[in-house]
Design a protein around this nucleic acid. Structure first.
Length: 167
DNA sequence: GTTGAGCGTT
């Protein structure tokens, strides 16, 4: 548990701890192929994304018009006051493809000069439970570390933002 | 008719 190399998440640029090649080999051996596939699926399932900091005037159509440029959109929501119909300044979006979702999370967004995309807290929580903090890696090549490729163990007190960036 | 961190009536 102590001989981990310091490393940096290529998405968030936050420091993460990555296990050594030897550790990964052992982990891989302990994990059969079926459970690996099962884990990968559970992590790559699409989920809603929360859009914070929306302009008051932004409508669902505006949201959709913006996000379809990344990929097919299943639904968009703008949360409003039930009485006045005014926007609460946040909403949700869901894509058909996980690829699209992760692309959207990984970059910054601007809708009328503001807005911010994240995984909702509920989803972060769910994914942490499902994965027990063993994440199938994002495309990680030997450029960043020397492990075989697919499994990176992130252990210990990771910042929530680092976890979001990795999911 | 205003506001500006947050976490979704169904």
């Amino acid at each position: 548990m102590t001989d981990f190399d310091d490393n940096v998440c290529p998405r968030s640029n936050l420091p993460v701890q990555v296990s050594t090649a030897q550790d990964n080999k052992r982990k891989m051996d302990e994990m059969d192929a079926a459970s690996a596939v099962k884990m990968k699926r559970s992590i790559e399932k699409t989920s809603d994304l929360i859009i914070l900091g929306l302009p008051w005037k932004t409508s669902e159509q505006d949201l959709k018009d913006y996000f379809v440029t990344f990929g097919e959109v299943i639904m968009v929501q703008v949360k409003r006051d039930v009485k006045t119909g005014n926007s609460k300044g946040f909403g949700f979006v869901r894509f058909t493809e996980y690829e699209t979702q992760s692309k959207v999370i990984s970059q910054r967004h601007m809708i009328d000069r503001r807005c911010e995309c994240k995984l909702p807290n509920s989803e972060v929580f769910n994914k942490c439970l499902r994965s027990t903090c063993l994440f199938e890696s994002f495309p990680l090549k030997s450029k960043f570390c020397s492990i075989p490729s697919s499994f990176i163990v992130m252990i210990g007190k990771m910042a929530p933002t680092a976890m979001v960036a990795s999911l």
